[in-house]
Write a protein that binds this DNA or RNA. Structure first.
Lengths: 183, 183
DNA sequence: CTTTGATACGCAACTTATTGCATATCTAAG
DNA sequence: CTTAGATATGCAATAAGTTGCGTATCAAAG
């Protein structure tokens, strides 16, 4: 159960609607945690039923009505307990690595192409993260505790993208003659 | 559907039982793809029903009987198609990053402790991967295409562990006064 | 006055993954 | 002789995630 905690984390200091949360999960928090709007809405309903969120319908003018969700005291307590509890480390589960095991049995060209695509994607992400860092987290030592936490998540993202790009270089160099040579 | 492809990949050049596969998923392939034996057995049954695997019961002497699974021609074709197809990139979904967002709202001590635990886990993994590299992949340029692929998965693992360890250092340094200061 | 697009919400069906439990056989150690 | 441990397989229940579809409202552009 982790999406629920990610949602509650997003609600730590603001009330948000399902739609707002969907936006959040496309940026910031979403850099580390993806989710579809369908699942977010379902999770929100379940969390309200469990008493961890307070739902407030808001009638709007000029746009469709919405439901704002706020973290309750119970929710805050449950979240704190989860943060305090143990975290189990999970493997990445990247399909590309499984595909790499198939080189030598399949045509390697599509795998090579995929690595090049990754190179672009990760370069784009890195650029985005770097920009955010420069704008909002230029001097990490001077940030509040809360923002240090967020900065560190961003820093992990930056390190990850750099690492991945370096790996792509290594992979493309090592495989450059494989592409044409073997079937 | 990716576990099924990981299983088929493991069966590329040997017949294995569910038990054997469970072992494989605790080492080698398992460094990048975790799975429980229950799920593996279920997947094996489904893949046999779909005709992608051929199941052969083997009566054993001295130990319990088993079922050996081999990749069929159809299975090989399906796997090749999957390798050729697009790969969608997935976010890591590490709970620890969500927890980082909670620093400043919760007691940060347990998060710090978790980062130290990660440091140990990743150091251990790195040592293991390095050992495997030294033993079997010392000169990557001279490997066959197939083993180059496996080596690159290992290389990604090594880079990942190193990157994570560096990040842990950064995090612990940045948070070292937060631990005592804020509630 | 119609289309496009953003906002706002959700159901249903399906697949995938996790957790807990259960059952055997045989070896080797004590 | 009994117990621990490796080998070998599985069911059932639950949780989590994905995919496809459906319903609205309203603004602004054409």
């Amino acid at each position: 159960m982790a999406l629920s905690h990610a949602i509650m984390t997003a609600l730590l200091d603001e009330e948000l609607s399902g739609y707002d949360l969907t936006r959040r999960f496309e940026t910031s928090l979403g850099f580390f945690w993806e989710s579809s709007h369908q699942q977010i809405y379902r999770e929100l309903r379940q969390l309200s039923e469990r008493g961890w969120l307070q739902a407030t319908p808001v009638v709007q003018d000029g746009r469709p009505d919405k439901i704002l969700y706020a973290l309750t005291e119970d929710g805050r307590k449950a979240l704190a307990e989860w943060v305090q509890g143990p975290t189990n480390l999970k493997r990445a589960k990247d399909d590309l690595f499984v595909k790499l095991y198939n080189i030598g049995h399949c045509d390697p060209a599509p795998v090579l192409a995929e690595i090049r695509r990754r190179q672009e994607q990760h370069a784009a992400r890195l650029a985005l993260y770097e920009k955010i860092r420069q704008r909002h987290y230029a001097v990490p030592e001077q940030l509040s505790a809360h923002r240090k936490g967020i900065y560190l998540a961003l820093a992990a993202g930056i390190r990850h993208e750099r690492m991945y790009l370096d790996w792509c270089d290594e992979a493309l160099t090592l495989l450059k003659d494989v592409a044409s040579a073997e079937p």
